[in-house]
Simulated scan of single mutants.
Amino acid sequence: MRLKAEMAAQGYNPASLSICANLNRRAVTDLLEGRAQSPKLSTAYALAKALNVGLDSLTGSAPQPSLAPRLAEILAQYDEADQERLAAAILSLPRAPG
């Protein structure tokens, strides 16, 4: 599941998401920490609804954007915080018209 990434993008932590999804906090932390590999469908739907995303996007069955293999290799060398700083730096570069 892409739960962790979606939570980070929307500013949720396990406690706040569990409240919003009307789930036990343990259900969220078990998914995040890999103790629950296949959540109940009702849990997955509750999380998707709370995050306002489709279930397919949360489970990974949605189409993924293409990333050049060389770029993926480079990004894999950095932790998430450094990747965010790299993204900000890239976005600050001037773009060619057209």
Results as ranks from 00 to 15, higher is better:
Met1Asn: 12
Met1Trp: 10
Arg2Lys: 08
Leu3Ser: 01
Leu3Ala: 11
Lys4Arg: 15
Lys4Asn: 01
Ala5Ile: 01
Glu6Ala: 08
Ala9Asn: 02
Gly11Arg: 05
Tyr12Pro: 01
Tyr12Asn: 00
Asn13Gln: 13
Pro14Arg: 07
Pro14Met: 04
Ser16Gln: 10
Leu17Glu: 04
Ser18Thr: 05
Ile19Ala: 12
Cys20Asp: 15
Ala21Ser: 09
Ala21Arg: 03
Ala21Met: 11
Asn22Thr: 12
Asn22Cys: 05
Leu23Asp: 04
Leu23Tyr: 07
Asn24Cys: 11
Arg25Gln: 13
Arg26Glu: 15
Ala27Thr: 14
Ala27Arg: 10
Ala27Asn: 15
Val28Tyr: 03
Val28Gly: 04
Val28Ser: 02
Val28Trp: 00
Thr29Lys: 00
Asp30Cys: 09
Leu31His: 05
Leu32Asn: 04
Arg35Glu: 11
Gln37His: 08
Ser38Lys: 15
Lys40Pro: 14
Leu41Glu: 12
Thr43Pro: 13
Thr43Ala: 09
Thr43Arg: 06
Ala44Arg: 14
Tyr45Asn: 15
Tyr45Ala: 11
Leu47Pro: 03
Ala50Leu: 04
Ala50Phe: 14
Leu51Thr: 04
Val53Trp: 00
Leu55Cys: 09
Leu55Ala: 00
Leu58Cys: 08
Thr59Arg: 02
Thr59Asn: 06
Ser61Leu: 14
Ser61Pro: 07
Ala62Asp: 09
Ala62Ile: 01
Pro63Gly: 06
Pro65Leu: 05
Pro65His: 10
Pro65Gln: 13
Ser66Asn: 08
Leu67Asp: 00
Leu67Thr: 02
Ala68Asn: 10
Ala68Cys: 04
Ala68Trp: 00
Arg70Met: 02
Leu71Lys: 03
Ala72Cys: 02
Glu73Thr: 03
Ile74Ser: 11
Ile74Asn: 02
Ile74Glu: 12
Ile74Tyr: 02
Ala76Cys: 03
Ala76Ser: 09
Gln77Cys: 13
Gln77Ile: 00
Tyr78Arg: 01
Tyr78Phe: 14
Tyr78Asn: 01
Asp79Cys: 03
Glu80Cys: 05
Ala81Pro: 03
Ala81Asp: 05
Ala81Val: 09
Glu84Leu: 08
Leu86Arg: 01
Leu86Trp: 06
Ala88Arg: 13
Ala88Gln: 13
Ala89Tyr: 13
Ala89Leu: 06
Leu91Asp: 10
Ser92Asp: 12
Ser92Met: 06
Leu93Gln: 06
Leu93Glu: 08
Pro94Arg: 14
Arg95Asn: 13
Ala96His: 13
Ala96Trp: 15
Pro97Val: 10
